[in-house]
């Protein structure tokens, strides 16, 4: 029981990070039908941006309030990562938009390799740690065996930040004109253009929003694990992509749900079975779900656009 509750908390924390990344995959897929394989590396890049600014703020400028530093770092990471997301779309994807379907996909793999190598060269190949921070925990209850079920401050911060950002993001997509234009472009890009919507700009903004959410995930990842390396984009990226597919690619609530499920599977499997096979478990569940629900949990079946 204690282990169950503890793993539930851990899984939800991990799942919220995956969910934030998964939104970037699912939004881009929804609007241009392309899997942005570089998104995982954009996430890794944002974690490095967060690390660099965190160190500048705390060690150089001597900022003592960790919370304030984190807020500033997160905003900076969001802005800079958005610029990266915008630039990647402009340079690597937009020129290929009229091309055959696989061209932007290959270009995305290229961007992914470029980003991880760029960070490796610029920051070195070793793991980069942050100074320890927010190590306090709340003991929720003590089990019979003397095992404490704890909720760390970090986990509270991660889950709360994710929830708040998802709410803002939900408002953006459902209630603002930008969100309406995005949904319109998803359904019928040519018709949207005929109503005066600048489709290219809307696609750019989709990449910007996806990158900003990845930056939040990157900051949270750094806070949670306290360490980041140049190849940390790959596995979380693939897991988040899996989450997007599991939830139904193109569906925003699906991406978050998929992220939470993948996070929970991973932590429960690690706790009850074997930690080595946690990734195998996550991907196996994906395979099984897709056999029975090919369009994912909340995805709509592909409708032929005429």
């Amino acid at each position: 029981m204690e282990i169950f509750v503890q793993q539930l908390i851990n899984g939800l924390t991990l799942g919220s990070i995956y969910g934030l990344i998964a939104i970037g995959y699912t939004m881009v897929f929804g609007i241009i039908g392309m899997v942005n394989f570089a998104h995982g590396d954009v996430f890794m890049l944002s974690a490095f941006i967060a690390l660099i600014f965190f160190l500048i703020l705390t060690t150089w400028l001597g900022m003592s309030s960790i919370v304030l530093a984190l807020v500033i770092v997160m905003v900076i990471a969001m802005v800079l990562t958005s610029l990266w997301g915008w630039a990647i779309e402009r340079v690597a994807y937009r020129p290929l938009r009229g091309s055959f379907r696989l061209a932007p996909l290959i270009s995305a793999i290229g961007v992914s390799i470029f980003l991880s190598n760029f960070v490796q060269v610029a920051q070195g190949a070793r793991n980069k740690p942050t100074p320890p921070m927010m190590r306090d925990v709340i003991v929720l209850f003590q089990g019979e065996s003397g095992y404490n079920v704890v909720l760390s401050y970090k986990q509270i911060v991660i889950m709360a930040t994710t929830a708040v950002l998802l709410a803002i993001f939900w408002y953006l997509v459902q209630k603002t004109s930008l969100g309406r234009a995005q949904r319109a472009c998803e359904q019928d890009r040519k018709m949207a253009a005929l109503l005066g919507i600048d489709v290219d700009r809307t696609i750019s903004l989709t990449f910007v929003i996806g990158a900003a959410l990845a930056a939040v995930a990157g900051t949270m990842y750094l806070l949670y694990y306290g360490v980041v390396s140049f190849n940390d984009g790959f596995v979380p990226g693939v897991k988040a992509f899996t989450a997007a597919v599991l939830g139904g690619i193109g569906s925003l609530p699906g991406a978050v749900l998929g992220g939470l499920i993948i996070g929970l599977i991973e932590t429960f499997w690690s706790a009850y079975f074997s930690i080595e096979y946690k990734d195998v478990a996550a991907f196996s569940i994906l395979a099984i779900v897709l056999i029975f629900m090919p369009s994912g949990i909340l995805g709509r079946p592909e409708v032929e656009k005429v």
């Binding site: 603002t176 004109s177 309406r180 949207a192 109503l195 919507i197």
Partner: peptide, 14 residues
């Protein structure tokens, strides 16, 4: 959606 442009300008691009 058809009035997107005027809304975007009014909202300072959201």
């Amino acid at each position: 959606v058809a009035q997107h442009n005027s809304l975007m300008i009014a909202s300072g691009f959201t």
